[in-house]
């Protein structure tokens, strides 16, 4: 046999991620989204200069995966905590990683006011239309008719109201500089998601203000679906009600 064929490494773990397996359920999108965020931390050379706020929900354990400085926030308070982080360390890159229960229910006041103040932070919002960690209860983003453990007859507009479109809502605030909704259900969307995150990181590193990236995500376990079915639901039902796209990009030229 001749010498070993020369192999080029085309895929590797971002340095900002620890070399440990995720605890997330099979088919959950948190793992992919973690990776995308970590890639940008690496790309922007921010691993040694990042302060993150973990929130309450499945992703509270993000500090087990991201090898950056992390502080845990009480439920919903994640945008207030990094306000403190950023004000104290304005030269650091500061981001939160929050789910829909955390950000769109209990933490509505904090996200609205952090955005409205134009805090120069980045918020990664993972919207899977359900409370994941507590076992599949109705979230503010749960779709109409969706059955959860606390909407056993399906979400009703009459008794529960309609799902909140957070990207659109935050885009109405003068303080929001960048807002986009993305998904990671296929390669095309994944590339767009990458671009949106890159843009959000650019906003913060250039001091352009509050940046927000909403990820539509699957939750096969609580949706009672297979990974494939859940992935398909993101692109269909979810994206129908929560259209993908860039909602605000004040520096777009």
């Amino acid at each position: 046999m001749s010498a070993k064929p020369k192999m080029k490494k085309v895929f590797d773990r971002p340095k900002s991620l620890k070399d440990v397996p995720y605890h997330y359920c099979p088919g959950c999108h948190h793992g992919v989204i973690h990776r995308l965020v970590a890639e940008q931390i690496d790309n922007f050379g921010l691993k040694e200069n990042t302060l993150a706020a973990a929130s309450v929900g499945c992703s509270v354990l993000m500090y087990d995966y991201f090898d950056v400085d992390v502080v845990e926030s009480p439920h919903g308070r994640a945008p207030a905590v990094p306000t403190g982080l950023k004000r104290a360390k304005p030269d650091s890159f500061v981001f939160t990683y929050q789910g829909d229960g955390d950000l769109a229910a209990i933490g509505t006041a904090e996200i609205v006011h952090a955005a409205n103040r134009g805090e120069n932070i980045t918020v990664v919002f993972v919207n899977n239309a359900v409370f994941g960690m507590t076992g599949g209860q109705m979230a503010p983003t749960t779709l109409l008719g969706q059955v959860t453990t606390t909407s056993p007859y399906g979400r009703s507009a009459v008794t529960d109201g309609l799902p909140i479109r957070v990207s659109e809502m935050l885009s109405t605030l003068e303080g929001t500089a960048y807002a986009a909704r993305v998904a990671v259900d296929n390669i095309k969307n994944l590339k767009k998601a990458k671009a949106a995150l890159k843009r959000a990181f650019t906003y913060q590193t250039k001091g352009w203000g509050f940046s927000f990236v909403e990820f539509l995500s699957s939750c096969p376990t609580n949706w009672k679906m297979s990974a494939e079915e859940a992935n398909a639901r993101v692109g269909k039902e979810m994206a129908d009600y929560f259209p993908l796209g860039v909602y605000k990009d004040v520096r777009a030229n």
Partner: peptide, 26 residues
């Protein structure tokens, strides 16, 4: 220094939590 009038008492204590996590007196 930084003075910030928060949107609520709840937000204020968590802003303190974030700032103090970086080691400053808050």
């Amino acid at each position: 220094g930084v003075f910030l009038q928060a949107e609520s008492e709840v937000a204020a204590i968590n802003m303190l939590l974030g700032a103090a996590a970086t080691g400053v007196r808050a």
